[in-house]
Amino acid sequence: MGQTRRDSLIELISYTDGISEMRDPIRVPVKRAVFADEKSVRQSESYQAAAVGLKAEVMFVIWPNEYEGETDLEFNGKLYSVIRTFKRDVRDLEIICIESKG
């Protein structure tokens, strides 16, 4: 069985509660870098996303044990929202994303 190559670096983003300087509650991003393969979104993914009013833009494949339920990720300076994950097998977890507006 061939070795899976992961050659892109993404930052998975989760959030924790914090307090601003003005003492207001805020969400503080917690970033964690992992290696991934960038893939094109399959046509079926595009159709599924369109059915709920979204446009699936990019898919990343990572090791399943590296994903901890993060809702966002950053890649090449762009912020993406995770719309779906799919565990293909023991070596591959697909993360399907749309570009986030911030």
Rank of each mutant, 00 (worst) to 15 (best):
T4V: 12
D92T: 10
E57M: 07
V82S: 03
A49H: 09
Y80S: 01
S8F: 03
V58A: 07
I95D: 04
N65Y: 04
S44C: 12
D92F: 08
S81Q: 13
S40A: 14
S8E: 12
V28D: 02
R5N: 15
F35T: 05
E99L: 15
F86M: 03
S44F: 11
L93I: 10
K55M: 09
V30Q: 06
D72M: 08
D7Q: 13
T16S: 08
R84K: 12
W63S: 09
V58S: 06
A51G: 14
K55S: 11
G102R: 09
D92A: 14
T4D: 10
A49N: 11
A50M: 10
V90I: 09
A50Q: 13
Y47A: 08
F60S: 04
L9M: 08
Q48W: 08
F75Y: 15
I10N: 03
T4C: 08
I96L: 08
S8V: 03
T16W: 00
D72E: 14
S40R: 14
K39S: 07
F60T: 06
D24T: 10
E99C: 10
K39H: 06
A56P: 06
V34D: 07
C97W: 00
I26H: 01
A56W: 04
V82Q: 02
I26Y: 00
R23A: 13
E21L: 10
K31L: 01
S40G: 14
G102D: 07
G102W: 01
E68W: 10
L12R: 02
R6P: 02
N65I: 04
R23W: 01
T4N: 11
V52C: 09
E70R: 01
D92C: 11
I26E: 07
I62F: 01
Q43M: 06
V41N: 05
Y80A: 02
W63R: 11
I62S: 02
G69I: 07
T16K: 08
R5C: 13
Y67C: 02
Y47N: 09
V58W: 00
L54F: 11
K39R: 15
N65H: 09
K78Y: 08
D72Y: 00
F35H: 12
L12Q: 04
S81A: 13
E70H: 02
S100Y: 03
L73P: 03
V90K: 13
L79M: 11
R42A: 12
I96C: 04
K31F: 00
I13P: 02
I95T: 05
D37S: 15
S14N: 12
L73D: 00
R27E: 06
F86T: 00
N76A: 14
W63H: 09
R88A: 13
D17C: 12
I95K: 04
G102I: 04
D37R: 14
T16I: 07
K39G: 00
I98Q: 13
T85Y: 04
A50T: 07
F60W: 08
I19H: 01
P64T: 01
D7W: 08
R32A: 05
R88C: 08
V58D: 03
T16C: 03
S40N: 15
V52K: 13
D7R: 12
A36V: 04
S40T: 14
I96K: 03
G53Y: 06
R23K: 13
G53N: 10
R88P: 04
R5Q: 15
S14R: 09
A36S: 09
